[in-house]
């Protein structure tokens, strides 16, 4: 299993166990993580599953694709390490990954 920690805007943390091969969004939805809206169900067309990947994990989560970057432009406040977590596929080498959930997805 892959351990993923979501840090909420109030500082509280939730760590979940996810199956490798799932997207981080699917894992978050399955565990009821607050703030991961994902209206489009993982099709990279709504931009509502944004997270901020902790700096030490960015090399392993990879960088956003062009389509993902174009989608992220819907958000006025941009931040380093932002990704749409429907585009991050979980693998064993990501166990322990930490991401922050934004105050709002809209």
């Amino acid at each position: 299993m892959v351990k993923v920690t979501f840090v909420q805007p109030d500082g509280s943390e939730e760590t979940i166990d996810a199956a490798p091969g799932q997207s981080m969004m699917e894992a978050a939805q399955a565990s009821g993580i607050r703030g991961i809206v994902a209206d489009c169900g993982g099709n990279c067309s709504c931009g509502t599953c944004r997270v901020f990947v902790a700096p030490e994990w960015r090399a392993r989560t990879g960088t956003a694709s062009e389509l993902e970057l174009d989608m992220l432009e819907m958000h006025e406040e941009r931040q380093d390490g932002e990704r749409l977590c429907c585009q991050i596929t979980l693998a064993d080498d990501l166990t322990g990954v930490r991401v922050a959930v934004p105050k709002s997805q809209f």
């Binding site: 703030g35 169900g41 709504c46 819907m74 709002s104 997805q105 809209f106």
Partner: peptide
């Protein structure tokens, strides 16, 4: 205030969510 759990859904949900919404 918009509660993420009850976000309005005018452009539908899932893979058929409105392509032209933006």
């Amino acid at each position: 205030e918009i509660d993420p759990a009850t976000r309005p859904i005018p452009f539908s949900l899932g893979k058929h969510m409105c392509l032209g919404q933006h």
